[in-house]
Design a protein around this nucleic acid. Structure first.
Lengths: 195, 195
DNA sequence: CTGTAATGAGACATTATAGTATCATGTGGG
DNA sequence: CCCACATGATACTATAATGTCTCATTACAG
């Protein structure tokens, strides 16, 4: 075949699936850190040829589009079950953080406005994500988990940044992976001062 | 004259000074948000012609270099007096935040690794800034302003992000300028939960 | 081991951005 | 008012990135 196509789950599309995942994964990581990264750098990071990149994604625009869609799905899949459990706001927050820290790149990627300058027509996904964050923020306020005088936009922003910071420090080896969620939760609720 | 030169504070270089400041200011803002921004976009944001941009900065590289140097100086000027005052760590922190929030763009700009991929030979400035942040973090720990079990790297990262977040939300009109420093300080020390 | 599909390398074409040169216009200090 | 000088607009070149294509090589299922 010239181009990989998804004809009814055929036998040997494992390889294709693997490279595709590889590309999406590495591209996400690279672009989250350096939005200016060229396709060359992305290909290099993913350890594939530039040509292969174009076999899977016909343009930079489409690559980014798929990254955004994938990020959105990951977040959706990770967070939906939590919201449906009808936990307390505090527990929801805790679970939220636990699942989002490992997805930090996706999370921040989707929150990053830089992307939208390269790929229009995705504002909806972004909005969804923001809406969900805002909902959680509101819930946290209602159940008095966070103080009433703190603006929701601040709550959401701080949460976003703590989660992304956690992801960055973990992937740079400065913070232990298992410590990160607790650190985020504690910093978010109680700050850094001693008990 | 062809190119503006700074010969002993001459009479009419006010205009030049103004445009130069204008460019540096707006370029900083634009690039902090979108490192990929083209010189076209920067010129547009600064409301000047692209040609003028090149009259003041012979290349993109030099523009960024000057931005970094300027950011570093601003931060240096703002923070040095504070450190020399020999305040308690807690008061140092408070003053620090007060002066840094308005400089959020510069601050974050200098912290952003993205810049170094465009302009080499400035790692020193970055290091200085980091060293200073780490020093403050250590001091905060020593004086038990922050808990002893929190890694300095986490302290520094959280502080950086809170300050930048404050600056962003202020410049987007979501948070009142005068509320921001207090919000940062409180979030940093006590988190968002109610008293 | 063998044949086929996926890949990598690299030679192109195309486009976007960086950078240069020129000239008409406009502004601000004298 | 006047004129030097900064600016904006535009046309131009250079360079880097995107996107297309071909072909030899490699990996893998049978």
């Amino acid at each position: 075949m010239e181009k990989p196509h998804n004809s009814e789950e055929s036998k040997s599309n494992n390889r294709q699936k693997r490279t595709r995942e590889k590309i999406l994964n590495l591209a996400m990581h690279v672009l989250a850190k350096k939005p200016k990264a060229s396709l060359n750098e992305i290909a290099e990071a993913a350890e594939i040829g530039r040509a292969t990149l174009f076999r899977y994604f016909k343009s930079r625009k489409q690559l980014i589009h798929e990254l955004v869609v994938e990020a959105d799905q990951k977040l959706e899949n990770a967070t939906k079950p939590i919201l449906e459990q009808k936990l307390t706001a505090r527990d929801t927050l805790e679970e939220y953080i636990k699942v989002l820290v490992p997805l930090g790149a996706s999370f921040h990627f989707l929150s990053s406005e830089q992307i939208y300058s390269e790929c229009s027509g995705i504002e909806d996904l972004y909005r969804n994500q923001l809406v969900r964050l805002k909902e959680l923020s509101t819930k946290l306020r209602e159940e008095k988990v966070v103080a009433a005088d703190i603006p929701p936009v601040w709550i959401a922003a701080v949460l976003d940044n703590l989660i992304y910071t956690a992801w960055v420090t973990v992937s740079e080896g400065d913070i232990a992976r298992n410590d990160a969620p607790g650190l985020v939760l504690h910093s978010f609720l109680n700050g850094l001062s001693p008990v």
